[in-house]
């Protein structure tokens, strides 16, 4: 995990070095700022050194828990990133809970009532869902919010957020969260549902299911006690993929619906040429994904004793 993050940060740093200009290139055009000031600032941020030297300065700071200083925001990057990371985490987490809560029962239902109209209908919807990109969904949601006025348009907080009581603040946050989270969840439902359906169909064909039925067990018992338990394991492995998809999806949703998460911060930093901040964001997003995969592995070991033994 640590070597992976080191590799990712090195890669993004190298890419950054290939890009022409930095945050101060724009300032150089400003006649009110003397070249000496810019040179001094550049030296302060080590931007006058080759990129691999910059990388080691950056790494040294990160090891001390200091993610540098955002040149565009004029505040330490650590607090900025942590608050944005928290927002991205909440939206992804809520979206995942919504998606799984919808997709799993639907998938089970489609598999049990195979070839019924519900199965056909849900597989058609899944096909459509797989083909709608987050951009389109987010724009439609934005349009919906604008036309009906039921949901706030963008942002994570009302203008009066700071004056509210903690409970009101929480509700306000949830109110702003729900639409982006739904959009993000909708893009994830189709994949999980199809996976659940085909897993359960596979296990329903297994011989121990036939045996269980032959013993005269009730159909509900057979499905929920025997088949479902074995169908869940492959789902836990797609948890990792699903998380990667969610993080990329969140990137789009955040940018369109103005949700102040890591993806939006990345774009803001990108346009401001705030290079350290871009690297920080990419490393943080990767860390989130890696931790998520690790959690998925733990869950898998918890649910499948065979993996624990290995």
């Amino acid at each position: 995990m640590i070597p992976l993050l080191l590799g990712v940060s090195l890669l993004t740093f190298a890419l950054m070095a290939m890009s022409p200009g930095n945050y101060f290139s724009a300032l150089k055009q400003n006649p009110q700022i003397s070249p000496e000031t810019i040179a001094r600032l550049q030296a302060q941020f080590h931007l006058d050194k080759p990129w691999y030297v910059q990388y080691f300065y950056w790494l040294e700071n990160v090891c001390r828990g200091n993610f540098g200083y955002s040149m565009a925001y004029k505040i330490p990057a650590t607090s900025l990133i942590l608050s944005r990371l928290w927002n991205t985490f909440t939206i992804s987490f809520v979206a995942m809970v919504i998606a799984w809560a919808i997709a799993i029962p639907l998938g089970i239902f489609a598999a049990v009532k195979r070839d019924s109209w519900i199965d056909r209908g849900s597989s058609l919807i899944a096909f459509v869902g797989l083909s709608i990109s987050e951009i389109v969904l987010a724009l439609l949601a934005l349009w919906f919010a604008a036309v009906t006025g039921w949901f706030p348009i963008g942002g994570a907080a009302s203008p009066l957020h700071d004056l509210m009581s903690p409970l009101q603040q929480f509700c306000d946050y949830g109110y702003h969260l729900i639409l982006p989270a739904l959009v993000l969840a909708a893009s994830d439902v189709a994949g999980i549902m199809r996976q659940m359906r085909s897993n359960l169909l596979d296990t329903l064909h297994a011989e121990y299911i036939t045996a269980a039925r032959a013993r005269g067990l009730g159909e509900g018992w057979v499905i929920y006690k025997h088949a479902l338990r074995n169908a869940v394991n492959p789902l836990l492995t797609i948890f990792g993929y699903s998380l990667a998809g969610l993080l990329s999806g969140a990137f789009i949703v955040e940018n369109i619906m103005a949700w102040p998460g890591l993806g939006r911060l990345t774009m803001e930093a990108f346009f401001a040429k705030d290079s350290y901040l871009v690297v920080d964001c990419v490393v943080m997003a990767t860390a989130l994904l890696v931790v998520g995969n690790f959690v998925a592995d733990l869950l898998l070991a918890w649910s499948d004793p065979r993996i624990r033994l290995e």
């Binding site: 992976l4 590799g7 990712v8 890669l11 993004t12 890419l15 950054m16 290939m18 890009s19 022409p20 990667a244 993080l247 990329s248 990137f251 789009i252 993806g263 990345t266 774009m267 990108f270 290079s275 871009v278 690297v279 964001c281 990419v282 997003a285 990767t286 994904l289 890696v290």
Partner: peptide, 24 residues
Amino acid sequence: MRFCELIMSVPALYLIISLRNAFP
């Protein structure tokens, strides 16, 4: 394979943007 894992472990859009950063 380690290099492939490196690329695949970054959420796609974050990687796209940092790659875009390398071009003028």
